[in-house]
Amino acid sequence: MLVVITLLLIDQLVGRTLIWINEGTMKGDYGRNTYIATQACQDILIFGSSRAIHHYDPTLIGETLGMTCYNCGEDGMGIILMYARLQLILQRHTPKVIIYDIEPSYDLLEDDNTRYLGFLRPFYDNDTIKRICVDVSPSERFKNLSMLYRFNSRWVDIIAQRISRDPSQARDYTWAPLHGRLNAEPSLNAESPILNYDPLKLKYLQRLIECCANNDIALYFVTSPNFGNTDDKVYSPLKELAAANNIPVLNHSIDTTFTRHPELFNDRDHLNQCGATLLTKMVIQEINNQD
């Protein structure tokens, strides 16, 4: 009994300390995560995975469209985290425009959705976040009773980013352009894999659309180019969803302006700075045309 009571006390004590550390983190991914959850109040928000954070220059977008802009993209993350981030932002501020870069693996196709909850668990006390976590996996209701669990595997990064003195890790970085050049030739598309779409992800895309409509937010879906890609079949459910709700899809996934030019890519899935700037400009132009 003594062990259990001590354990519960340590769980609360260490967990609360980690929450305090996390809230004060000014650097890196966790600094950005806290900033987005508690302070971000820009007019234009960019959502999506690594392709969002590497492909869109918010300064260029903000200056051209005459509004403030912040890039909320996150490596390896998708609609579940992005929808939750929007809910946290909406609790204090309503953006005017959302540019959502769709990555099929994280926004459309099936995988273990609990992997998208890592950035959210530190904010589990927030009712909206709690609902999303439990919706993704009912067992989260019980797991998150442990304050330590909320920081599972992430506490090292959170502490390291809290004490980091590296200026390049500042949390106001909103664009991480890549500087390499792809050394490859376009190859024929491999045989199409079987596409298992994830009903939960599609549900959250639908919720995002409804949320934007209810809050008068202009939503634009963008599909970034993949090097050598000639087939955009994977985006079919997105196109259907967007068409049914009158949401523009700025489809660059098979755009030959990019797909045949290795000099615009860092790797097959990510543009380098040159390609990203070109894509940013094209997206701005298309948004202007839509307006």
């Binding site: 062990v3 354990l7 340590i10 797991k143 330590l148 920081f151 599972n152 595997s153």
Partner: peptide, 15 residues
């Protein structure tokens, strides 16, 4: 016991 449990919660891979 406590140390191992805390480490399981903080460092475990729960997939």
């Amino acid at each position: 016991y406590i140390g191992l449990t805390v480490l399981i919660l903080l460092c475990g891979v729960f997939d």
